Structures are given as structure tokens and as C-alpha cells.
Computed example of a mutant assay.
Amino acid sequence: MIELTLIGIGTGNPDHLTLQAVAAMRAADLILIPHKGADKDDLAGLRRAICDRYLGASTRVALFDMPQRDPGDPDYHHRVNRWHDRIAAIWQDRIAAELPLLSGKVALLVWGDPSLYDSTLRIAGRLELPLTTRVIPGITAIQALCAAHAIPLNRIGAPVQITTGRQLRDHGWPEAADTIVVMLDGESSFQTLRPEGVQIWWGAYLGMAEELLDHGPLPDAAPRIVATRAAARAAHGWIMDIYLLRRDRDQQAGRA
């Protein structure tokens, strides 16, 4: 039986790991690390640095090449499902190669927390192996963003909606929420909103040495964030960012 552990590692800072996460890493026989291409070597490097800091000599670390999504498929959900199938097949091959008796403890280091806008659990469900799965929670990008700006996530007694850039572009501001958190947004979709009366708190590379932050009224901050984001992506070859938007009370009441 394979025991698969998905370990939330926060947003790239080794200090984000919980004691539970460190113990799970040290108990693993094998840790799988994805390699996403030369332009994203930093991501694999951060995982390796975490392993170097916390692991003993008995745990093996194996890299695997992360496949690319098929850009030719216009159906987003179909494209993502096929991509997950390919990732699961790679995991299965690597586990079988590294643990040929199909027995032992395998771990994957997951950015943030495996429960929030992450597909590692869905991919694990595709494995055709005798296994059990457990999850070690981690610091989410939402927590890191609010901590970096020293702000509460919500107003008193008020709801918060977590959404994606695609949803914001296609459907606009979600109803019944005066605060929204936007993840997985490669196109700065806040530019599609009416900016008046909206505040934004933005962060990229949260918890890392490269951390970038900006905050202010959306009409003023949006151009700065777009320019900063483009420059950072060009410099690093990748970017992970997140932002929180909050409307004033007049807009929430529909008077904007």
C-alpha cells in the first residue's frame, strides 16, 4: 500500500512550513518534485531548498517533467481534465519506478494549501494504485496576502467570495459580497471592472525575497500593478500573484 501525503508548503518561504509538514516530509520515503521548464526553475529550486533544509539522508527526492496543457482545445474543462490525466500517469510511472513493491510513503509539496484552487487532490484521485491519501494543511496565498498588508480578510459580519480571474472577466463582481479575493489571474482582470469606489490589495511572490506589494484606490493602483506585474514576469519568467478587492458601502448597496 502506498501512503500519499500532500503537504501544503505555503507560498515559497521555508518558514511557512508547519511542524506537522516537516514531520511528514521526514517520514516520507520519496518526495516528488515537478519541473516546469527552464523558465520556472525557481519553483523546483524552492522545493529543493525546502527539502535540503528539512530532510534527512534517508528520503529520496525525484523530479518529474510537468506536461503542458493542450492549447488547441477550446473547451477549458476538457483541456484541464486531459492535463490532469497526463500528470497522474507521470506520477504513477515515477512511483512505480522508485517504489517497485508499491509500498511506502510518497509526498508531494503543494504551494499554499491543497484544498484551495489546487488540483493535486483531483490528480491523486486518478491514480490506479493501492493507496491512501492524507493532506497536511498549509498557509494559503490569501493568508499571506492579508498578513503582508496587515489587513483583515473580511469586514465585520460580511461575506467574502473567492474567485478566479476568468470568473471575474466573464461575470463581473459577484453579487452579495463587498470583498472578493481573486486567484489564478494571468490577465489582471480587475481592469474589466468599474474602478470607482474599489480598493485593491495586491501581492506577488508572497513570502519570498522577491515579494511585491501594492495597495490603493483601484483607479490609481491598477496601472501601477499592471506595469509592475509585467516587469516582474519578464525578469523571473513566471509570476504568482493574488489580490483582494473591496467596494465601499455605497457600491455594495447598488448606488455605484
Score class of each variant (00 low, 15 high):
Leu129Asn: 00
Leu102Gln: 13
Leu184Arg: 06
Leu153Ile: 14
Ala96His: 12
Ser188Tyr: 08
Trp201Pro: 10
Pro114Asp: 10
Glu210Asn: 08
Ile90Gln: 02
Gln167His: 11
Glu210Gln: 12
Leu101His: 07
Asp118Leu: 09
Ser115Leu: 13
Ser189Ala: 14
Glu98Gly: 00
Cys146Val: 15
Leu121Trp: 05
Pro137Ser: 11
Leu108Trp: 01
Arg194Gln: 15
Asp185Ile: 04
Val181Ala: 09
Phe190His: 12
Asn154Val: 14
Ile151Asn: 13
Pro174Arg: 02
Glu211Val: 07
Leu101Pro: 00
Arg155Ser: 15
Leu145Met: 14
Leu131Thr: 01
Ile156Cys: 14
Gly104Trp: 04
Asn154His: 15
Asp118Gly: 04
Asp185Gln: 07
Asp178Gln: 13
Ala107Gln: 05
Tyr117Lys: 01
Thr163Lys: 05
Ala141Lys: 06
Val181Glu: 08
Trp111Pro: 06
Asp170Ile: 04
Glu211Thr: 10
Phe190Gln: 14
Ala144Pro: 09
Asp185Met: 04
Ala177Trp: 00
Asp93Trp: 00
Thr133Ser: 07
Trp202Asn: 05
Gly207Gln: 08
Leu153Met: 15
Ala89Phe: 03
Leu168Met: 02
Gly172Leu: 04
Ala204Glu: 01
Ile180Trp: 01
Val110Asn: 07
Pro159Leu: 07
Lys105Asn: 07
Gly104Arg: 09
Leu129Ile: 01
Asp170Val: 03
His149Asn: 15
Gln167Asn: 13
Trp201Arg: 13
Glu210Met: 09
Ile95Trp: 02
Ala177Tyr: 02
Glu128Arg: 03
Met183Trp: 01
Leu121Phe: 08
Ile156Ser: 13
Leu184Asn: 01
Ile156Gly: 13
Asp170Ala: 10
Glu210Val: 03
Leu129Thr: 00
Tyr117Cys: 02
Thr192Val: 13
Pro137Cys: 05
Pro114Asn: 11
Ser189Phe: 03
Leu102Cys: 11
